[in-house]
Every structure is written in C-alpha cells, then in structure tokens.
Design a protein around this nucleic acid. Structure first.
Ligand SMILES: [Mn+2]
Ligand SMILES: [Mn+2]
Ligand SMILES: [Mn+2]
Ligand SMILES: [Mn+2]
Lengths: 234, 234
DNA sequence: GTATTAAATTAGGGTAGGCTAAATTATGAC
DNA sequence: GTCATAATTTAGCCTACCCTAATTTAATAC
C-alpha cells in the first residue's frame, strides 16, 4: 500500500526536525508541528515502526530509516515541484502556493510528477528558494544559510530562502520586494532586533522574528546555486 | 466539513446512474460501479442520508437531493476541467487523463478550480467530448446522442463523445483517429455488429461493444455545441 | 538519593470506511 | 396465494485516525 497522507506528513515532519536538531526526534515536537495530540502521534509512530519507516527507542524519540527518508524526500519533491508549478504556470500568488501544495503533494501520481518536472525544465529551487530534490530522491544539500537576523549594519547580501510557513508574512515580504534573488543592504539594526534594509532604494523595517526566517548569502562570496533575480517581480 | 472522497464518489455515481436510468438508484448498482461490497454502500448511504445529500426509501433505492446533486456536479466540474488541463497543458495522453483526474478531483481547492478554468478559457467540453458544468453548477444539458452502434451504412456523422471508462479502448481509438470532432462515414455494418468506418480515407473496423460507447451527431443537422476538429490529432 | 516535572505511553472511547455472513424484504413465476 | 430468488439491510468484526485522562518513565534540581 502506498502511504496515507497522515503517514507522509509525519515522515516529512520528522525529516524537517532531524535537519533542524538531529535525531532522535521527540513525540511532542512532532505533535506540535502537526497540531495533533501527543497520544495520536504515539500511535502513528507505532504504525511507522511496523512499516520500518522509523526506528524508535521507547521514551527517547525516533529516527527515519533509509526507507522512511526516501518517502519523506519524495513528498518534499512533490511539494516543491507543485509550488513552483502553481506560481509559474497557474499564476498563484507567492503566499498561497504552500497550502495548495501541502494537500496535493499526497495525491499526484509519479506520472504527474514527471510531467511537472519536464514542463518546468527540472527546476532546482521552489518559489521560496528551497532546493527541490532530484528524481534520485537524494536529500538535497543543506547549503550554508545565514539568517538575516545575524547580519550587521553595512552588509550587502542576497536573499536566498524565505520560510514558507506564514502566509501573512510572505504576502508582506512579497509586497515590499523581499523574495529569493533580491540583493539588499542592511541599513540599521536596532537594539530590540528591528532590522532596516535597503531594498532597491527603499528602506524597509523588519521585526527580528521575521528576519530569523529569512536566509541570505553575502554578496562577497556569491553562491552560484542561487541566481540573483531568478524571479523578478513583486 | 467538506465531503470526503468516499462521499463524493458515491454522489457522483448516483448522479450518473440517475441520468442513465432515473431514480430510484439501487444499492447494488452503486456497489458494482464503485467496486465495493453492498453492505459497505448501505452504510455509506446511511451517512449520505444523515447529511441530507440523498433521500431514501428502505429496500427501494435512493435519489439525490438538490444539495447532493450540487456536490456531484461540482466534482464532475473538477474532473472534466482537470482532464482538459492534463491533456492540453501537461501533454497527457488521452487515455491517461481519466485516472489522474478521478483522484485529484477530490483534492483541489476552489481557487485551483478557478485558475484551471481561467487558464483554459472556460472550456465547454472535456477531451472525451463530455460537457463541463459551469461555475453555477447547473447540471449540464444532456445533448441528443446517437450511439455509433445505431448508425446505418452510408451515414456521415461527427464523433461527439467517447466514453472515458476503458483505457485500452481509448488508446486504440486515439491511435486510429476516432476522437471527438472527427467526421466519419459508415462503410459497412456486419450482421454480428462489427462496424466499418471511413476515417480520413482509412477504413477502421470497430466491435459493436465499443461502438455503443461512442456517440455521434449526423452531419445533416450539425449541432453547434460540438465543433468539428476541436482537437485535431492522433 | 529524593522530589519535581516534563515527556511519553497506555487506557478507553469515538467516527469513517472497509469486509463477510446472516437475516430480511420485495418481486416475479407459477 | 405460495415460493424461489434477488436485493437489501443487519450483525459483527476489522483498521486507521482522532481525542482526553490517567499512568509511567526520564531527567533535573536540590
Ligand atoms: Mn513522486
Ligand atoms: Mn516552499
Ligand atoms: Mn473522465
Ligand atoms: Mn469547485
């Protein structure tokens, strides 16, 4: 049987948490992300273990098996190809692609995936700057990412990734022109974390909370994996 | 709560059966179409009745309410828009669109539906020649349809609809050029039902079974709801 | 080492959606 | 009218997911 949406979402969440903090991944961290009760996650993990998608130490947490990681990466590929397609071919606004992709990622066929990739000419990054896993389903490299919140006054950087989680923040950032590929210049860092940027000649202030979810690369050592202005719009 | 795939598929099946034979629709007819046990359908119909999507007479069968019909037509709109999009924009082969659309129809948002319709410029018919319900979700008109099996030698007709059910038959028909919009000429009707057609100068023989699932319009009284050659390929 | 506390699991219960096998009901043949 | 048959429902069982409340375990403070 092919994995259900619940199984796929749980694997995807474990994958993200492993990348953020490494294994083992705790039950409540998963429950928080999925907005489910802890007991619900415990019983889901039982099924994942039966299917050899994770290994588990009672009361200690879990870790993806190779099989589990491959399923997670496949879902991630679906998600990011869909986001890219929705934005590029169906004219979806930047901030709306995540929600639609998060549902459809569980329901498209392999044929659909192939045709998306082909039509898009095998894109490497989604609209938020996140790397799209290849057909081989190898986990994408974690490229070096500096949070915007760690920048100092005077730095010139290029936006490389913007977290796709909060729809309102994304709408705001798109509105002021802060999207992957945009070059910016840090004008001011206030004591409580407000960061002021120069974006195409206009100054924009951003709360630290939001700045944490924005990743940048210094313009001094440009990383060719992200092209400047690969999507040039508002 | 928005209806589950099982609820939607059951409503869609009742809708089709009502159009073919009129209400009341029996439990086993639904079970046959959905490839489920009769008892499974009985309990699904219980839920449909609770939700006021059907009315039911014990042991007699069921009928869609207005609410139930609207849900069925909405799913039908999703299905046919998706089929059209897959064929026209993702280069799906004719015979593969049905299966993919049959899954995705339950998972796209209203936003996705709108953007499909817009990108396709509000198409009236899907790749099989079936009418696509409008945004208003009125049931599409049943246009007069003669089965190809009822034609006589010498008739000149235009293919208007081809049942989307059998993938192998569809692949064959596409291969020999029998698709909606094609004008053909009946050359021979053999006693056991084999029908020979002239398609663009080439003769093609078709078993009666298949001919039953092909609908045509006489070239004498052309129905403007179907344009000749609106998809001109193999 | 013991007490506190947070995390995790277990216990118990609910709904949707599946099944088979056993009743029940309607219907057409005679 | 009775009987056989087919359609339908009921009974009883299962799994996947979901929850809250109670319990158990691990980790930390002291
Ligand atoms: Mn895939
Ligand atoms: Mn994304
Ligand atoms: Mn179809
Ligand atoms: Mn819709």
């Amino acid at each position: 049987m092919s994995p259900s949406p619940v199984i796929e979402d749980t694997l995807k969440t474990i994958y993200h948490l492993q990348q953020e903090a490494g294994p083992p991944v705790g039950t409540s961290a998963i429950a928080d992300r999925l907005d489910k009760a802890q007991a619900t996650v415990t019983s889901t993990l039982d099924r994942l273990e039966d299917q050899e998608l994770i290994t588990r130490e009672p009361y200690q947490g879990c870790e993806l098996t190779d099989k589990g990681r491959t399923v997670a990466v496949e879902v991630l590929r679906h998600h990011r190809l869909l986001e890219t397609y929705l934005a590029d071919h169906l004219d979806y606004p930047w901030e709306q692609v995540h929600e639609e992709a998060d549902r459809l990622e569980h329901h498209i066929s392999e044929e659909f995936e192939r045709r998306l990739a082909e039509t898009l000419e095998n894109p490497r990054r989604d609209p938020h700057g996140d790397p799209i896993p290849g057909e081989d389903l190898e986990p994408p490299n974690q490229d070096p990412m500096t949070p915007l919140s760690a920048c100092e006054v005077g730095d010139r950087v290029v936006i490389t990734r913007v977290s796709d989680r909060n729809e309102d923040d994304l709408a705001y950032l798109a509105d002021v022109g802060i999207t992957p590929g945009t070059a910016v210049h840090i004008v001011d860092v206030a004591p409580f974390g407000m960061i002021t940027l120069d974006v195409d000649g206009t100054e924009q202030a951003i709360p630290e909370e939001v700045a944490t979810s924005i990743r940048v690369t210094s313009l001094n050592d440009v990383d060719d994996s992200v092209s400047v202005d690969h999507r040039g719009d508002a």
